[in-house]
Design a protein around this nucleic acid. Structure first.
Length: 516
RNA sequence: GGUCGACUAGCUCAAUGGCAGAGCAACUGACUCUUAAUCAGUGGGUUGAGGGUUCAAGUCCCUCGUCGAUCACCA
């Protein structure tokens, strides 16, 4: 049972009072002829054509949410906000009568949805305003919206007072956050635009959008811990996917030459400002392409998304300008590590010799691990933070890349790159391994390497191998975190700011709602 | 998981260990061009939860919860 605070109880009483007065607080139908922005634009246009004795007349019915009211006895000003912005209402006893004005002043509140019809006008201070002849309550708000008021200073800047700023409340009650913070709505409009521009780019490059299973009997395609679930009737253990890779590459076996999927991945790991347990991934695979071709597609695609969303291929991110204009810098991993640490990984062909070289520099590498993980450590610790402008870091050690193809003549290195921007990983791609015998051996090797680390153990996907044995065209594959791209393009430091409903620990309210 | 910080009215924030406050929001009244409207008045609190020290705790100590920052983890 919902408990109400004193402010809410007052509003519940207002609902009864409205019903007693014959006013339905939640009518079924609404009407509107203009958005706020349309009404203002139309009135401005009409003013230009107006002349002496031929005034601008624009009739409009608007609908929106009350954001501020100023009652002056026989006059009331209010602002309502709809999807297009705010607009002022002007209600006067002359037109709507004492009783209707009094109901507006006494029984309507900030947060209520109303519709208002009237004639557009300009007030003495010049604000384009709807002179209301009649209004209708569309939906009464019981809980007060987190109050916030905008003050327009003399120089035109808008100062927001008492805005909803508590980060926890904003994330838990995103509906209230969205309702009172237009900038938050704008972020999510941008996010939608980013996703649609990625889709358009891939569609225009002959990619086919597909959907593959989220519930999988065997997880794979990435090194991450899965969420597990269970199908009762089939008595089957299932995993929520950690990547789309193995299913999308099955489709290449099926002669679908270019495929992509945008959807949710689930990883049962830590939560941080750049990790959410479920996140949106874009993966594509292109037959007859290699990782160099994928680099070109990547820089074009990201620059395209940036252009679509921000009107330019440059963006300010956390105080520094990022330039996505192709071509991006290409940095070979061996060279990059050599530049920042002075260690040449090609001179250390195994874990032992590499660990020795790292210790010789006075660093603290992880112990008892593989050569690949040592290289990963050097990259993560010393190289990544230096990669601010978009950079393709390429040529990775083979043993941390079980699905990538080796460079011809260099069995220790695979044709793989990661795209780094602002010091963090944006995307990951490689020339895909299409030799089934090699793939099977790599899976088995992974199994041996990680026997000690049960949780990171990759399951052997026999059906995927069976697909490969039918023959897979050479191809390049790509994966990118859409949330991270959105962070970059909207200048948000935390992934929570670009997720409508980020994962949060359950609070008291949600715990109460749970059935035991 | 470690470390540090935050949590006070619906919202944003104050309060040397000594009566828990302000602005906005709300309520009552005045006001026919206001715009953070103004003016007069009123109500509103288990100070995140629980324990402890003290004559006295929002404040000091302990435990817990949540959020944030950071580190670890994370292809």
């Amino acid at each position: 049972m919902t408990e109400f605070n004193s402010l809410e109880k007052i509003r519940l009483e207002k609902i009864s009072e409205l019903r007693d007065a014959g006013i339905e607080p939640y009518p079924t139908r609404a009407k509107r002829t203009h958005t706020a922005a349309q009404a203002i634009a139309e009135f401005e246009a009409a003013e230009k054509n107006a002349s002496e004795g031929n005034p601008a007349v624009v009739n409009a019915t608007l609908a929106g949410r009350i954001r501020a009211t100023r009652s002056m006895g026989k006059l009331t000003f209010a602002h309502i906000e709809d999807g297009s912005g705010k607009i002022q209402l002007f209600l006067r006893v002359n037109e709507i009568g004492q009783e209707r004005l009094s109901i507006f002043d006494r029984l309507l509140d900030i947060g209520d949805f109303i519709q208002a019809e009237g004639v557009m006008m300009r007030t003495r201070t010049g604000e384009i305003t709807l002179h209301v002849h009649d209004y209708t309550l569309l939906a009464k708000a019981v809980s007060p919206l987190p109050a916030s008021k905008d003050e327009t200073l003399a120089d035109g800047t808008v100062v927001r007072h008492a805005a909803l700023e508590g980060q926890e409340l904003r994330a838990r009650q995103r509906y209230a956050d969205l309702a009172v913070n237009p900038a938050v709505r704008e972020t999510f409009r941008k996010r939608a635009k980013i996703v649609s521009s990625l889709r358009r780019f891939l569609d225009d490059h002959d990619f086919l959008e597909v959907e593959t299973p989220i519930l999988q009997p065997i997880y794979g395609g990435a090194n991450a811990k899965p969420f597990t679930t269970y199908h009762n009737q089939l008595k089957q253990q299932l995993y929520l996917r950690i990547s789309f890779e193995l299913y999308l590459k099955r489709l290449l076996v099926g002669n679908l030459e270019r495929v992509y999927e945008i959807g949710r991945d689930f990883r049962n790991e830590g939560v941080s400002y750049k990790h959410n347990p479920e996140f949106t991934q874009l993966e594509f695979y292109a037959a007859y392409a290699d990782y160099l071709k994928v680099m070109e597609l990547t820089e074009e695609m990201v620059a395209f998304a940036c252009q679509e969303v921000n009107g330019t291929t440059r963006v300010m991110y956390q105080g520094q300008e990022i330039d996505f204009t192709p071509p991006w810098r290409r940095l070979e991993m061996r060279q990059g590590i050599l530049d920042v640490t002075g260690i040449d990984i090609s001179a250390a062909p195994d874990a032992e010799s590499l660990a020795k070289a790292i210790l010789a520099k006075g660093y603290n590498p992880p112990v008892n691990t593989t050569r690949g993980k040592l290289i990963d450590y050097l990259v993560g610790e010393y190289l990544e933070p230096t990669l601010i402008q978009p950079t393709f870091l390429y040529n990775y050690p083979r043993d941390i890349s079980p699905l990538a193809k080796s460079i011809p003549g260099d069995p220790l290195t695979v044709e793989r790159f990661e795209g780094y921007v602002a010091g963090f990983e944006l995307c990951n791609a490689f020339t895909e391994l299409n030799d089934p015998l090699d793939q099977e051996e790599r899976f088995l090797q992974m199994g041996r390497d990680y026997t000690a680390d049960e949780e990171e153990h990759n399951l052997l996907d026999e059906d995927y191998l069976r697909a490969m044995y039918y023959g897979m065209p050479p191809n390049g594959g790509f994966g990118m975190g859409v949330d991270r791209l959105t962070m970059l393009l909207t200048d948000k430091h935390s992934i929570r700011e670009v997720l409508l409903f980020p994962h949060l620990r359950s609070d008291e309210q949600t715990q109460e709602g749970g059935e035991i």
